[in-house]
Design a protein around this nucleic acid. Structure first.
Lengths: 183, 183
DNA sequence: TCCGAATCTGACCGATCGGTCAAGTTCTGA
DNA sequence: TCAGAACTTGACCGATCGGTCAGATTCGGA
């Protein structure tokens, strides 16, 4: 509810995504937000809790969608993919942090939550998780999407979301939907 | 030639890839390599030069392959892709650093060289760089491959390279080769 | 009006950062 | 053998890190 806390969350998310968590200092965040470093630590009692506050809305939403989707099949799966892509676009900064910085953020609780989510969604898309090809196709779809979304936040001449969304749905579908390939 | 310098490059590459450049201190590297921090700075006069020494072999090799490939077509392109994938596997740690940490490593010369390389390879694969779909397909192939390779270095139950290589070639080819899709 | 809670801040803390340096030790070729 | 180059090291430097704290300021409800 307090405007300053929201602003700090927003600024922190942007800086963590564009410069990396460890390369972003509380002083950086305070400067951009126009407050003192002590004020940042008044609203979020540690840097790690600030990261958690910045990321948790994304993982809550994505996790919620996945909760509603267990057991779906056929066209429902397509609708699920559409919802998921919309949410990935909405939370692209957080998704980029999850995927590209998870190695650098071991032992941070919320990142471990995110890794658990990635496990769940992998299982959702693949009946046979032991197949190397299915594993790889999912990994490429996931990492590729995250890379693309991170680019879309940093590069200026990037396609609009209106262009991005349907193409993303099509390409991801092509990668993770077994039936679209000859087997 | 000196064994210690090679060992330091190796250790630094591993730590930079697994924990991130900014999250890895010279003291960490020294501890793992079993020498003092001052000794690290004797062989590489700054942390940034150590990063450069760790990454440049990869970008030299990849750049060299691309140099030899301009103007190829048809089956030659397939052979080129095979070479490129082999080299990506060989230098997977460096590739992972390039792709996932490039945002956090702005203003580092070698990373800017790597970005220039990515531009070149994108142009090689796509006659029409302005098409949003081609752009996205290439981005997903690139980011997805890097994510997968990073995983293969960190996750234990990952397919062998012998399994990885042909599947990677097939999936990347599927993503970046226009002729394989209905248009 | 006034009081207490909420907010904000500068000064400060110990720890660690990347990097320097002088003094040692080890290696090597003449 | 021995001089000089190559290498290693602990002590040290200023800067910055995340975090604490006491006090000033602002604000909302009684």
């Amino acid at each position: 509810m307090p405007a300053t806390a929201d602003e700090l969350r927003r600024v922190a998310l942007e800086l963590f995504a564009s410069s990396g968590y460890h390369a972003t200092s509380l002083q950086n965040i305070a400067d951009v937000a126009g407050v003192s470093k002590a004020s940042v630590l008044y609203h979020f009692s540690s840097k790690e809790l600030l990261l958690e506050a910045a990321l948790s809305p994304a993982i809550d939403r994505l996790g919620g969608i996945l909760d509603d989707a267990t057991g779906l099949a056929g066209d429902d799966r397509v609708r699920f993919l559409e919802q998921m892509v919309a949410e990935l676009l909405e939370h692209r900064l957080a998704v980029g942090i999850f995927v590209t910085q998870s190695a650098a953020l071991q032992d941070v609780p919320i990142v471990e939550r995110a890794n658990a989510f990635i496990q769940r969604i992998a299982i959702f898309f693949q009946a046979n998780v032991d197949s190397p090809e299915e594993k790889m196709r999912f990994g490429i779809a996931l990492g590729g999407t995250a890379y693309l979304l991170a680019q879309s936040a940093n590069v200026d001449d990037f396609p609009d979301d209106a262009v991005l969304r349907p193409l993303l749905i099509a390409i991801i579908g092509e990668l993770v939907t077994t039936s679209s390939r000859g087997h």
